[in-house]
């Protein structure tokens, strides 16, 4: 402040501002307690519960659960399913978001609605639909049987329904961002002589990089955690068509609580890793910008 008089009227302002923009402490306290209460009851307690049950009989028994061949098969199948479904979902989501976000065409709203369909349909219904199509008495059943291809009650069916329930994740993350970013940067790239391919890889994709990764993580979490749809098409063949969530249910129904919660703890860890990764991605973007700024400030002060 260059002049003394200019600072005088502002001296009383902060106290006044606090009064004007906050609630009484009682309201604040009650809201905070309510929020923390919900958090504890619905998130923290179940999480602690899972690990407490899994480790109820000590580390030895906990680790023993993973030596069971059926459990290992379930883990393998879950990883395999995710490894196939997530890349496909990602490719589809990226293509759909690109088309919707960057181009004008007829039927765009119908396409957006269709992409949301898996979110609105109950997973069990989704599973049944696939049984109806590919099952023994389904539309394509006789033909598939004649050619010796089994989809329902086998791995292909599990991958298919996983694909169905996960495909909105990436697209949903990307569409609003791509729409908000508009097409000016792509146009600039085209004017500068970049091909469509170059423009996509060097301009469109880097601009949605973090949203894409976020979508992939969510998609992966769902692919590994899906129960309903997979349950309908899997047939529950132990050691063959059981994924981790199905294995958890079977073990639980067998009153094998420790084993059930041990597998469940892996899924819980997956959830935690997902959350950490999400935070890391957010933090990375912020850090990248801050770093660039610091370098510049240093250079500027030198010049």
């Amino acid at each position: 402040m260059a002049t003394g008089t200019a600072t005088v009227p502002t001296s009383g302002a902060p106290a006044q501002q606090r009064v004007a923009t906050t609630e009484p402490w009682l309201v604040r306290g009650m809201l905070t307690v309510t929020a923390l209460g919900f958090l504890g009851l619905f998130l923290l307690m179940p999480l602690v519960g899972v690990f407490a049950q899994a480790l109820a009989k000590g580390w030895g028994v906990y680790l023993q659960s993973f030596r069971d061949p059926d459990a290992l098969a379930a883990i393998r199948l879950t990883l395999f399913t995710a490894a196939v479904a997530v890349p496909m979902s990602t490719a589809f989501g990226l293509a759909a978001a690109w088309a919707i976000g960057k181009f004008q065409f007829r039927g765009k709203n119908v396409l957006i609605t269709l992409i949301d369909l898996p979110f609105t349909v109950s997973p069990v219904v989704a599973g049944l639909v696939f049984v109806l199509i590919f099952g023994r008495n389904g539309w394509l059943g006789p033909w598939l049987q004649a050619h010796g291809i089994q989809i329902i009650y086998a791995v292909p069916g599990i991958v298919l329904v996983t694909l169905f329930v996960t495909f909105p994740f990436v697209a949903r993350e990307l569409i609003p961002l791509m729409q908000a970013q508009g097409t000016e940067e792509e146009e600039a790239a085209r004017v500068l002589g970049a091909s469509g391919w170059h423009t996509f890889w060097r301009v469109t994709l880097p601009n949605v990089k973090w949203a894409l990764l976020y979508g992939v993580i969510l998609c992966n979490a769902r692919a590994m955690g899906e129960f309903g749809a997979v349950s309908v098409v899997s047939g529950h063949i132990r050691g063959n068509t059981n994924t981790m969530p199905l294995q958890v249910e079977i073990l639980y129904n067998d009153y094998n609580f420790v084993a059930a919660f041990s597998i469940a703890s892996l899924l819980a860890v997956l959830a935690l890793v997902t959350l950490v990764l999400k935070s890391v991605f957010e933090w990375k973007v912020a850090r990248q910008l801050a770093l660039a700024e610091r370098i510049e400030d240093a250079e500027e002060s030198l010049s």
């Binding site: 940067e185 790239a189 004017v191």
Partner: peptide, 27 residues
């Protein structure tokens, strides 16, 4: 577009937001 070799300055600049100034100009 790319074969016309025109320089185009967009109203809202359309700079590539994930590239530095140098990379923008070098694009």
């Amino acid at each position: 577009v790319g074969d016309r070799h025109v320089g185009f300055v967009f109203q809202h600049y359309a700079l590539f937001r994930h590239m530095s100034v140098f990379e923008n100009v070098a694009f």
